[in-house]
Amino acid sequence: MSKQRKSKQPIKKRVTFSDDTTVTRQSHGHKKDSIDHEHPPVFVRKTWLTIPYHLIALLYYYIYGSEFDSTTLLFCLLPTQVAYLIVQFNKCTIYGNKRLKINYSLLLVSIFASLLLSVPAAIIAVLFGAPVVNKLFETWLLGLHASFLSYPVIYSVFNCDFKVGLWKKYFITIIVGGWISCVVIPLDWDRNWQTWPIPVVVGIYLGAFVGYTIGSYI
């Protein structure tokens, strides 16, 4: 959709990765006449609809149902995230003054992009202290979880002019969730849920939950 719109514009296109704060601020009092048609304001509506209930369900399944099987959890995460995007998150995303319809090809592109982004996500995890050599697969799995948790945001980034500045907070809450959850790793309780990457997986799910819930208020 964004591609079609862009191709119609003869004016020089600008893709900005900067934090476009003016745009986010406008979201409070958006008026039709103040909208810049080249870069219309993008924001997420403040509504209960953004709460990702499925993440809590998934966590419940992860902790009590699957004995911390991170791979199965990932396979459950993917369809629910797509559903969440279609049913909930996209409906709250306002581009200009209207909701955008779901772009199905972009959904697939975003899945692919999430797959690709799991590698930088894993690299970030490694930079933040994840084991590299002997637990590489687990670390990559963590990266996959992180990137699929941010799947709705990745889709929205593609869909709304690459305004990374607006969406940054969602990535940040996921990272912060993972960072905080590291606290339990050094404890000597010798529980099976302390093995890598389980605590951080739980942490990023909680981080994402908080992020999607209150993201529009930040």
């Binding site: 933040f128 912060v176 590291c182 790793i185 050094p186 309780w189």
Partner: peptide, 26 residues
């Protein structure tokens, strides 16, 4: 107050430093 935190104190410093760096970067 936690014996394992004393044993693994390097983790706490790592945690604090990465956190600060993240905040500073953001």
């Amino acid at each position: 107050f936690g014996s394992s935190f004393v044993e693994e104190e390097h983790q706490i410093w790592w945690w604090v430093i990465t956190g600060c760096l993240f905040i500073s970067a953001a």
